[in-house]
Design a protein around this nucleic acid. Structure first.
Lengths: 192, 192
DNA sequence: ACGTATTCCTTGGCCGACCAAGCTAAACTC
DNA sequence: GAGTTTAGCTTGGTCGGCCAAGGAATACGT
């Protein structure tokens, strides 16, 4: 079916790499770098999450958002964006889909006419326990066979890695409360 | 079922979760479950990879494929799919884009007229060292501040998690031993 | 030989996620 | 006030990734 280009068949650069990057029998890149492993694990983890979440009707990524929504009854979209540290456009599209699915309601903020207020609908509450169960299952699937010490160690190392990557990508404005969910609530109930 | 915007005025299910999943004062889920952390790390890692890869013109995910291609001079697409353990359609689309970008060439297999042979083009060789450098940088960014022991431990734990998720999703057909990762990098039973 | 898997790949649709622009409404100058 | 910046969100595009179907060529069973 119509290969695009018929060209000289140069043998590519098969064989040894130009630099001496890969020839590293022992050392940092032994047995596949951690980055490699991390990518694979991330993908598998997302697949597993997707499978568990499927029965709830949510797609992986949306649970994050819904969980935040279930904790605070009405949130500004900008707060959501900051809390999840996602691109604004990503959140917009997710909310559009969740809105259409009936899990979320959006309304204009009367106080700031360019802002949007978001809240979870009553129907979404049905999902809440299912999502929580799915995450519990996922956690157990992920960590099966690891004892408490290993789990703690993994959590610790991941946190360290996260901080590294945060700093590097500058995607992490500042450490927002990771222990408490609503640690940095702006103005709780600032209605007048 | 035209349920675009259904009115339910109940104030969502704000407050405490129905089950008691989250209330885990001490123990495994301290500071958020590992799944949560893993998701965030995965995203940051991908962003970092994307930034490093940007100058090469590749998108994160494509380097995997190119690396495989650079090692073996001509590969059947089905081999690629198995090696990377991706969905066939994903590989097809990636190859279409890489082909159009000039980094890859596809041709019909004369031996099996439904198969497609893939090889890296000569132009792609320019990228090779850049990609290798990017991965080295990424590895260092990711693991900054972790000593050798910690790195090893992280690699070990990730491998365990990977196996867990593999088994669960059945997405992992045995490690095909072809220039593959050292699956036996860990001696059995040398725990402390 | 003939029908039936099975393999290999492609298309189309969908989602999360990014970036690049853009548009509106506030806030901040002057 | 008028002009400029900034915050808040949206649209459109691209990519990796999945699934669900489908088309073609091969392999298999009888």
């Amino acid at each position: 079916m119509a290969m695009t280009s018929e060209r000289t068949d140069d043998p590519a650069c098969t064989g040894d790499p130009p630099g001496d990057h890969t020839g590293d029998p022992r050392g940092t890149t032994h047995g596949g770098p951690v980055s490699h492993s991390l990518s694979r694990v991330a993908r598998l983890h997302r697949i597993a999450a997707g499978k568990l979440l499927r029965r709830t009707g949510l797609y992986p990524g949306q649970e994050f958002l819904m969980m935040r929504l279930w904790n605070t009854d009405t949130v500004r979209q900008s707060e959501l964006i900051k809390a999840m540290d996602l691109d604004p456009s990503t959140v917009t599209k997710m909310l559009q889909r969740l809105d259409q699915a009936g899990y979320v309601r959006r309304s204009a903020d009367p106080e700031d006419r360019r802002a949007v207020l978001v809240e979870a609908t009553g129907e979404s509450c049905t999902l809440r326990s299912e999502v929580a169960d799915a995450w519990t299952d996922l956690e157990e699937q992920t960590l099966a066979g690891l004892d408490e010490a290993e789990r703690g160690e993994l959590a610790r190392l991941l946190a360290k890695v996260e901080e590294n990557l945060c700093r590097e990508t500058q995607e992490c404005p500042e450490r927002r409360g990771e222990a408490g969910t609503a640690a940095e609530e702006r103005r709780p109930a600032d209605r007048e």
